[in-house]
Design a binder for these strands. Structure first.
Lengths: 201, 201
DNA sequence: GGCTCTAAAAGTGTCGACACTTAAGCCTAT
DNA sequence: ATAGGCTTAAGTGTCGACACTTTTAGAGCC
């Protein structure tokens, strides 16, 4: 239930700021309020949902300030993850990332590029071998993904995503990872993510 | 309820690995299972508690591997926080930290030193101005605190805490923060936290 | 028309109940 | 004594109910 609800929120099925009433959701998922309630509590801890003072639940809205916070937190976690991932970086990992970047160059849409981008970042976090890092990172991933979907929904041009720079940064990161220099990989990831902040807003 | 239960877990009222049965807790807190259940779900997301495959709930145990993960994650978040904190670091902040370090030099017990240490780190995270950073950091704080309490409980000597080095590192951090150099503050925090990993285990 | 007050609808927080699952205790047979 | 199996106790997941609170909708008034 938790996962199902999260997916629907991230996919934009419930727009940002919309109310999430327990009886309504219970009806929609053909269940009682108890499981819904549990899912909402978990989602609140993940930051996808907020409880207002009145007890009402809404899908959390992501403003410019939130976006900055998300990117800074991502930069912190992922740069550390990149450094750690070098501890046991294998040729197979290099291959995976290489293939991913290749697909990025051939991506037919922005949505596809974003999906590949998220895949790549998730891969690095997973390869850090630090499970808590992964656990902390995941909520940021959902929030980031939800934000992207929101951008696609209302095709605002000022939400520009620098495709070419992204791919270049990924190549740079890959080189550092393949070379096996943790501090370079870490720094590369840090720059890559914080660079995006220039377009946010 | 969530907060009350967390406090009791962190304080060692429920030892690591002990079972947390909903009916028992409901009896203990003179309430029904529903609020207990909600609290457990939140605590699970915070990492203080685990749900086994069977559905049973236990206080999470912190092994050497977990400790390493916690410290690495803390290093990632707090070094970023230290860098950000410099954006609007005031003289009042320098004063606060200075007083805190003074108290550390006069601390009468290891427990008191730890409390001051946690206060200091929390202060820096709060002053980063990034609320998500704080939100991600808090669970690590509880896990770290629970680990410390566990150490005090079974006075094992191999769990050594380098008091003098800690205070020195805090002074170094303070200098960087007061000087207003984000990268130095960030690096100082990173070194300080990762240094402790040498004594962990 | 717009405003205010009021009544009804909808929502939350908490509770006890029930079926089903898992763990514990016990008893027997070897 | 102990290992295996059976009975009983304990725990979880889900449900509907109820009191209380907040929101909504409408009637009446200016």
């Amino acid at each position: 239930m938790h996962l199902r609800l999260r997916k629907e929120i991230v996919c934009g099925r419930f727009p940002q700021g919309s109310a999430l009433a327990e009886p309504v959701l219970a009806e929609h998922y053909q269940t009682s309020r108890a499981p819904i309630r549990e899912a909402l509590i978990a989602l609140e801890r993940e930051g996808l949902v907020t409880f207002e003072k009145t007890g009402r639940t809404r899908v959390r809205t992501i403003a410019a300030k939130d976006l900055r916070e998300i990117m800074e937190a991502r930069a912190a976690l992922e740069s550390m993850a990149a450094g750690l991932a070098n501890r046991n970086w294998k040729d197979a990992d290099t291959e995976f990332v290489t293939r991913n970047i290749e697909k990025q160059t051939n991506a037919g849409s922005l949505a596809e590029l974003s999906r590949l981008d998220i895949d790549l970042h998730q891969y690095v976090v997973a390869r850090s071998g630090n499970d808590r890092l992964r656990q902390l990172w995941e909520p940021l991933r959902w929030q980031w993904e939800a934000h992207l979907v929101e951008i696609y929904r209302r095709q605002k041009d000022d939400d520009f995503i620098p495709e070419q720079e992204t791919i270049t940064a990924h190549r740079h990161l890959l080189r550092a990872l393949a070379k096996g220099t943790p501090s370079e990989a870490s720094q590369s990831m840090m720059n890559h993510i914080l660079f995006n902040l220039r377009w946010a807003k």
